[in-house]
Write a protein that binds this DNA or RNA. Structure first.
Ligand SMILES: [Zn+2]
Ligand SMILES: [Zn+2]
Ligand SMILES: [Zn+2]
Ligand SMILES: [Zn+2]
Lengths: 165, 165
DNA sequence: CTATCTAACGTTATATCATAACAGTCAACA
DNA sequence: TGTTGACTGTTATGATATAACGTTAGATAG
């Protein structure tokens, strides 16, 4: 149920358990130390908030929680922390939802793809390394030097697919 | 230079020539007639505006042009026309840019992928039917019923890759 | 131990993107 | 010819994101 190895394609939806949260947070801290970036209190708390969330969170939702806990109350506070997390591989931005989600395997370099449920808005991160490689090659065939890709799929998660419309 | 067949992967960047514009517009009109949707003046003009543009256009850019030509002056005018075009396969939305681009082959059913140049903001539409199929299968392996995907790649177009930074 | 520097944080103000809600128009048609 | 429904337009507002600037606090050089 909980295979985060890079070849596994899409993985499970449930990343909100406390065990996962703690483990992922620990990985993130290790990686931050190794790469010399500072996982400051706001940044760390923002990552925790994302990890505790069931789906992706909008910047203003994150801001609400942060300001309720005594951090800054204005949008840049949330956007700065979130952008830091995204730029350093601790979180991903979900374009379709204008929202952010914690990376489920921040310890390794990877290309991600996302499965977004139309019904319950759950977001599942999967590994898109092979898709990305194929796209880099297809793009290069027309002279385009591909740097990074956004892959977001919309449909029904397994939980919602079972239920009636 | 101008192969729009569905197997060709990414195709050329230059779709702004008058010949292309006219041909694509004609295809769109044919398809609209066939599928019983109404390509009204605002909608048709909006599609022309997208076709004439070199890259993707934001809704407010489209609105500027429309209102300068005597159409409505308020955002819903542009958003309604653009949403109509997207829903009916005449245009695509580029999530990363909050912008819209005319579909280069509105005559056929297809899954699109986009190559977005970081430097000049050009947008190239390519065919992603095979990627999409592969993703549907990968998603189905974890019980996700995939409906549609957004695939957007960022990098340097062939024109910009040659130039100095 | 100070002076200086800089990354990070916080604020105010504003820009940018998008939609809700409702009124007028007009062609289709019972 | 009255009704209907799709379309276009408006006003008003909501949602997302950033620019610009002052403050704080840890790091480093003197
Ligand atoms: Zn990730
Ligand atoms: Zn679901
Ligand atoms: Zn297309
Ligand atoms: Zn370019």
């Amino acid at each position: 149920m909980t295979d985060h190895s890079p070849q596994s394609g899409f993985c499970c939806t449930d990343h909100s358990g406390a065990a996962h949260t703690a483990a992922i947070l620990a990985q993130a801290e290790t990686r931050a130390r190794e790469s010399g970036v500072r996982l400051t209190p706001v940044r760390r708390r923002t990552l925790e908030i994302l990890l505790e969330a069931h789906g992706a969170l909008g910047a203003y939702e994150v801001l609400e929680r942060l300001s309720a806990e005594g951090y800054g109350t204005q949008p840049p506070v949330a956007y700065r922390a979130l952008n830091f997390l995204v730029e350093n591989g601790f979180a991903h931005r979900i374009q379709r939802l204008n929202a952010f989600t914690a990376c489920v395997h921040p310890a390794r370099d990877h290309r991600a793809a996302f499965l977004i449920c139309d019904r319950c808005n759950s977001v599942t991160e999967g590994c898109a390394d092979s898709f990305s490689q194929a796209m880099i090659e297809a793009a290069s065939a027309v002279g385009f030097q591909l740097e990074r890709s956004t892959i977001e799929a919309v449909g029904l998660c397994s939980a919602c697919a079972g239920k009636p419309a």
